[in-house]
């Protein structure tokens, strides 16, 4: 007989309306995919917060390490040429 558990952990992402981003809502426990979706529905969309749900097993999520934030994220900070405001447009030009 298997040992008693509180079942597996899943992270839940909710889309509030069609076309919107899926936003992390929290976590539920469930033993299988279908239960994960049903539990996510009852836990995170009791007030009509969602039109679509993703549930992902927690151990399938890989997270960046905050200790490596310097090397991971800082190099993007000086690449301002990726921003539209970096460029000087001739005066009078429209719709650009």
């Amino acid at each position: 007989m298997s040992a008693d558990t509180q079942l597996e952990k899943w992270e839940v992402f909710i889309q509030s309306k069609p076309g919107a981003n899926f936003v992390h809502a929290g976590c539920v426990h469930a033993s299988d995919k279908k239960m994960a979706l049903q539990n996510a529905r009852d836990t995170y969309t009791r007030r009509g917060e969602g039109t679509s749900i993703w549930a992902v097993p927690c151990d399938a999520i890989v997270a960046s390490n905050p200790d490596e934030n310097d090397m991971f994220f800082d190099p993007a900070n000086d690449k301002t040429y990726r921003m539209p405001t970096f460029y000087v447009m001739p005066e009078g030009a429209k719709a650009i």
Binding site: Q38, N39, D42, T43
Partner: peptide, 11 residues
């Protein structure tokens, strides 16, 4: 049997 199911049955 588990908190998640409590919410389901209440629904």
């Amino acid at each position: 049997p588990i908190l998640e199911e409590d919410l389901a049955l209440t629904n």
